[in-house]
Amino acid sequence: MSALDELRQLRHGGVQVRKRDNKAAFWFLAPWFAGLIFITVGPVLASFLLGFTKYNLIQPPKFIGFDNFARIFSDERLHNALGVTFTYVLVSVPLQLACALGVALLLDRGLRGLAFYRSAFYLPSLLGSSVAIAVLWTQVFGAEGLINRVLSFVGIEGRGWISDPDTALSTLIVLNVWTFGSPMIIFLAGLRQIPAVYYEAAAIDGASKWSQFWRITLPLLSPILFFNLVLQIIHAFQSFTQAFVVSGGTGGPSDSTMFYTLYLYQQGFSRFDMGYASALAWFLLLIIAAFTAINFWAAKYWVFYDD
């Protein structure tokens, strides 16, 4: 295409910087700009202001200073919700990624029927966030559900996993682990990038599969692992549907499935305390940002870039 390159240079007078297309760009980006103002960044800023008010949608917002933010520090139900959410995120994400990586390793390198397995393992991630699967989970982990039926065959007496505050959250953690398919696909794509010669050389030097995994696969895969970790943590913080359906919208039993998002929903859309809900939304944003920042900071110590 050198001829074209030359033509272009002629047209623009040599190495001169390409002219700006501000006008065209404005029109192409017009919908996106409007979205920024009305749907994304605008509301984020607005919710900051609403956070300083008492507002129930009917009466006009009333300025109350830092009351909503102060309430965050004294609201014990919220603290419980934070505990539930942190437990959910910190337990389910590592388990989910471990499963994703484990199965990806099994599927790697020209396994016959790869496409079939990949699809089968991926399917749950598409279904996992639906109300239908939450309904299924309610039955499966119910007192007379599938799990207890199966357990009774081996003589174990089960319990109402979802109606018991000690185990309700675990059923949702299992559900999140169940959707390991999408990080698995990202792992598979990453594994394919690792040159086979590394393994061949290591095998010649007599390295076992185990040390090949720790010394070749894991370091070279660490950027992908990091990417999955950041993404899945952010996703897990936003879980809502499953806890909502399984608990009938209450976050019960005894607030044991009260995710932060569910609490926010209840404050905003059941009690119409929009001011407090806005403050909660901002606090959630800060928490997620903090987790992401910690992730990026910690990455310096364990993520390995091969370039």
Partner: peptide, 12 residues
């Protein structure tokens, strides 16, 4: 950006 962060003012 989580949808939960923008939903309140968006709803308003």
């Amino acid at each position: 950006l989580p949808v939960h962060v923008i939903i309140v003012p968006q709803y308003v």
